[in-house]
């Protein structure tokens, strides 16, 4: 078991190493560099040379990669171009904001998704299923920029209940941030919940059709007891991995929603730093997002392993 965890962690690091190589070399081969971006029109002659000198860009690429990677390993991503801020200072509040948004969406979206999925499966082809399934399929098909814009139009502009876009500074405290995230959370949850509910529904239906559930019924197990003891633990196991991917997506992939609501999260930072050609930040973001995906998937796999008695004893035997 421990060996397996160590193996997976090692594999995770190898993945991150490859990601860092790819992003680093990607940035290398792109035309233009930090200095040409920074100096803009004055990027020639002595000024450019001085800039290269100052930023250490005239050393060979592999040397720069090593010193950059060594920094990253110590938690130091170096300096950003715009304003020459420490990247750590740029990223910190963004990571926090994204976490707030993600946690709120998870806390609201996942329970609703599980509930809807279970209801639709248990009342399969009956009225509750038909109504909920229609709604979930509908909200799955509307792109988030449309649903987000509609939400702003209705809730913020017509009803004037909540602020339409987030206009607080990036580094505000969580309590100040909270009222601002309600609309983004709703917009994100709509899609996320719909996807997960469909997944849970099909998983529960599959387990309900299994021999062991028929056996439990024939044993005289009361309906709800059967659902909670025999169906749900087996049906929800495969959902763990989907939940994990969703969390990873929430932390960095909700770019469109963050842009529409002007939310200061990681997703918007990606867009901003790419359009500013702030390459050190892009590199840092790539590494951070990759590590989020790797670690969350690792946790999900380990949880599946712990909760599934079949896999657990398989590992112990080996």
């Amino acid at each position: 078991m421990l060996l397996l965890v160590l193996k997976r962690i090692l594999l995770g690091f190898i993945t991150l190493f490859i990601v860092s190589l790819i992003t680093f070399s990607g940035v290398e081969v792109l035309p233009g560099d930090a200095c040409t971006t920074y100096l803009e029109r004055e990027a020639y002659g002595a000024a450019l040379e001085a800039c290269y000198e100052r930023l250490g860009l005239n050393t060979p690429a592999y040397e720069r990669y090593i010193s950059w990677a060594a920094g990253v390993l110590q938690g130091d991503f170096g300096y950003s171009l715009s304003g020459e801020m420490r990247i750590n200072d740029v990223l910190g509040p963004r990571v926090k904001n994204s976490m707030v948004l993600a946690s709120a969406s998870i806390l609201i979206g996942i329970p609703i998704a599980l509930l809807l999925g279970i209801i639709t499966a248990l009342w399969r082809d009956k009225l509750p299923d038909i109504i909920i399934s229609t709604i979930t399929i509908f909200s799955m098909t509307i792109p988030e920029f449309i649903s987000a814009t509609l939400l702003i139009l209705i809730v913020a502009i017509w009803l004037e209940w909540l602020p339409g876009i987030v206009i607080v500074p990036t580094g505000v405290s969580i309590s100040e941030l909270l009222p601002n995230i309600i609309l983004p959370v709703i917009a994100i949850s709509m899609i996320m919940t719909a996807h997960m509910a469909r997944m849970v529904r099909s998983s529960v239906i599959q387990v309900m059709a299994s021999d062991y559930v028929q056996m439990a019924i024939l044993k005289g197990v009361p309906y709800w007891k059967m659902v909670f003891k025999h169906v749900l633990p087996n049906a929800l196991l495969p959902a763990i991995n989907v939940v994990a991917l969703t969390i990873a997506w929430l932390l960095g992939g909700v770019v469109v929603t963050e842009v529409v609501f002007n939310y200061p999260g990681l997703g918007r930072l990606v867009i901003e730093s790419i359009s500013n050609r702030d390459l050190p930040v892009v590199q840092a973001l790539a590494i951070i997002l990759a590590s989020i995906y790797v670690s969350i998937n690792l946790i999900a796999d380990l949880m599946t392993l712990m909760l599934n008695p079949r896999l657990k004893s398989l590992q112990i035997k080996k």
Binding site: D211, Q214, M215, L218, P309
Partner: peptide
């Protein structure tokens, strides 16, 4: 009714299934 059946199934009439491997709940 299902409720009355629950008192008969397993108590008065019991079933031994074809494939016991698939008829035992895997997580219990």
């Amino acid at each position: 009714k299902n409720k009355d059946l629950e008192n008969i199934r397993g108590r008065k009439i019991a079933m031994i299934p074809q494939n016991a491997g698939q008829s035992l709940t895997p997580n219990l």
